[in-house]
Write a protein that binds this DNA or RNA. Structure first.
Lengths: 124, 124
DNA sequence: ATCTCTGCAAATGTTTTGCATCAGC
DNA sequence: GCTGATGCAAAACATTTGCAGAGAT
C-alpha cells in the first residue's frame, strides 16, 4: 500500500506544471520550496515508484545523469555529436515501432538517440 | 597528436575480437591480461578518445553503466520494462532515420530504446 | 497500534582530475 | 628534449541502503 504523504505531494506537484525533463537534484531543489526538510533519498525513492506506476518516464541523455518527466508529455529525440559531445533535440519523429516487439509486450513509449557529427564538427 | 602506446594497443586489442558491449571495468580486466599495471583512469581516457575518433560507440542501457563497442558492429535496440526493470534485446530494426536530422549533420548510428511492460508484467 | 515512509549518514559505484613520473616522437 | 600519456590517489558525482524515529492509515 502506498501512503499519501506531504513529501510525495510536493514531488508530484513539481511535475504538474510544464517543465523540461528534470534530474533528481533539480526535483529536490524545486520540491524543497514546499518542503524544506525533504531529503534526496526520498526523491530517489519517490521517483522510482512513480516510474514503476507509469506516471514518470526516465529520459537518458548520453553523458548525463538520468532525467525524469511526465509520461504523458510528448516525447523527444536526441542527436549526440561524438566529437564535441553536444546533444541537440530532434523534433521530427517517424514512428511505428510496434512491429519491433512481440504482441505479448505492451509498448508505451520509445526513445531514439542519433549519433554522428553535428553540422559544426562535420565541416572540420 | 596521439601517441601509439602499449596501453592503447592493449585496449584496442580487447575490441578486435567478437565481444558484446563492455563496461570500462570489463575493458580494464581484459586489457590487464596484456598489461597488468594498466589503470582505470587510462581506460576511461582511452575510451573517450576512441569514441571521439569514431572507433567506439557508447551503448546506454537504462539503469546500467555505459558500455562501449566497435562502431562497425551491427547495432542493437532495447526494450526496458518499467515494472521489473528487465532489459531485453530487440532484433528487428525497421526505420530510416535520415530524414530526422538536417543535411548538415552526419548521421552515423542510431539507438532505439522501447519502454513499456514485458510479457511477464503485462499479464499481471 | 501497525507498518510504511522519511531523513540522515554512510556505503557503493562510476567517472574525472591533479600531479609527479615515464615514454613516444 | 619536448610534450603528451600513465598510474596513483583523491575528488567529484550519482545512487542506494541501514536504521531509528515520525507519521499515515
Amino acid at each position: 500500500m502506498i501512503r499519501n504523504t506531504l513529501q510525495r505531494r510536493a514531488i508530484s506537484r513539481v511535475f504538474s506544471v510544464d517543465v523540461p525533463p528534470l534530474t533528481p537534484q533539480e526535483v529536490l531543489a524545486a520540491a524543497q520550496k514546499d518542503m524544506p526538510a525533504l531529503g534526496i533519498a526520498t526523491v530517489y525513492r519517490t521517483l522510482k515508484s512513480m516510474v514503476e506506476s507509469g506516471t514518470l518516464t526516465i529520459v537518458n541523455l548520453p553523458g548525463e545523469a538520468s532525467r525524469y518527466e511526465l509520461t504523458e508529455k510528448c516525447h523527444h529525440h536526441f542527436f549526440s555529436c561524438r566529437a564535441c559531445g553536444k546533444v541537440s533535440v530532434v523534433s521530427k519523429c517517424i514512428t511505428d515501432f510496434k512491429d519491433m516487439v512481440p504482441n505479448s509486450f505492451k509498448l508505451e513509449r520509445h526513445e531514439v538517440v542519433l549519433y554522428g557529427l553535428c553540422s559544426q564538427c562535420n565541416k572540420e
